[in-house]
Design a protein around this nucleic acid. Structure first.
Lengths: 207, 207
DNA sequence: TGTACATCAGTGAACGCGCGTTCACTGATGTAC
DNA sequence: TGTACATCAGTGAACGCGCGTTCACTGATGTAC
């Protein structure tokens, strides 16, 4: 039975990953020591090395976890948007509204993004992890690009528009607004940027 | 005479800062060792501590240098734009075009921004440095916001628009696009985002 | 059902290396008189 | 103009601490027979 097989499994590994993500986003991977994580979680250092063969394995696990969470969040929000509106443009616009609201309600005051943090420390990691980081960005590009292609069939834009750049703009704005929000300690910046992006998208397809 | 007074002054300090900025943007401040900087520059470790009393002083000096360079670059480009066109909107649009071109011509393939790097490691620094980082963002906000107020007097936008968010969008897009450009190793992302921003600004004030 | 063994989720102690920092010292250049 | 002193831009050696990593070991839980 899965139940019995799982009985021995603790959530220590997951709690290590949570503590690690908080610390990495706050001060970077190199400055995040294993010592502080195990104090957070309440195990000894050897306990850490039971779960991760070395510090690099922690980075890899963080990235995997981040990829999955990111995908789930985006899926949830934009699926909801499409449920609320049949039309691909308006379903998307509703999704962006929901997204902005979700970002405004974040409990943490100054959140950050693991992809951005890793990006500015990429020399620390092997190619494998850098590839995963690139993939995390490509997920956004593909998702938004596919939607814009769909919308453009129904609402062909008047002027030529760089749809790939428009798709990348979503990730760019979110990454950038996270930085501004943190630097200025202003949690409203991120949702406002998303709403502005929404205005832009609407203006392009429905002037 | 300044000449003679400066004769003894070497450029070692400046070369240390250059090497440090490269390394910090590539792998973060914590992972940048003093040892690697002095190898780059060709002095001993004690030589480093002659120029900076400790590693924190290096961070402060990097931030000061960055603030000055950033201001100069922005000044240069948007002053040029205004010289080429009297109208505040069109002078600004020309400036954005010049900006995109300057970004496309950057020699480094995957540049980065010190403000973003410091932002994702801010727990390493004291309040003083965090304040300077916030200031580096506010410089952008004030610059663009003032310009939009000016433009809006002549070209009042049809619909209500969050001009502060529109101003912040410039820094957000640049910071975000730098991250995407690095992660995907694609130097075209950044200039394309700036051109898209330009389209948006034009559409708002001159539909 | 009892027993032998295997696996899970760690513990505890030790190691060695790289890092930031200190301190006494130095040769070349500049300045006062 | 020469000399004494000050400053600049470093050198060289040492230190100590925190960090990631290893390794032999352990008690609790699960599994085969």
């Amino acid at each position: 039975m899965l139940e019995t097989a799982d009985r021995r499994r603790t959530d220590t590994r997951e709690r290590l990953l949570e503590a690690a993500e908080r610390a990495v986003v706050a001060k970077g991977f190199a400055a995040t020591s294993i010592d502080e994580l195990i104090v957070d979680v309440g195990i000894t250092k050897s306990g850490f090395f039971y779960h991760f063969k070395d510090k690099n394995a922690l980075a890899r696990a963080l990235m995997l976890r981040y990829l999955a969470q990111d995908r789930d969040v985006l899926d949830g929000i934009f699926t909801r948007g499409d449920e609320l509106h049949d039309d691909p443009l308006h379903g998307f616009l509703v999704g962006l509204k929901l997204f902005a609201e979700a970002l405004a309600d974040l409990p943490e005051h100054h959140p950050g993004c693991l992809a951005a943090s890793f990006c500015y420390q990429d020399q620390l990691f092997d190619q494998d992890i850098r590839d995963m980081n690139a993939e995390s960005i490509l997920v956004w590009r593909r998702r938004f690009r596919a939607r814009f292609d769909l919308i453009a069939e129904i609402y062909p834009p008047k002027e030529k528009i760089d749809l790939e750049a428009l798709a990348d703009m979503a990730a760019s704005l979110v990454e950038g607004a996270l930085i501004l929000g943190r630097a200025l300690k202003d949690a409203t910046i991120l949702p406002r940027q998303v709403l502005l992006y929404r205005d832009f998208v609407r203006a392009i397809f429905q002037p």
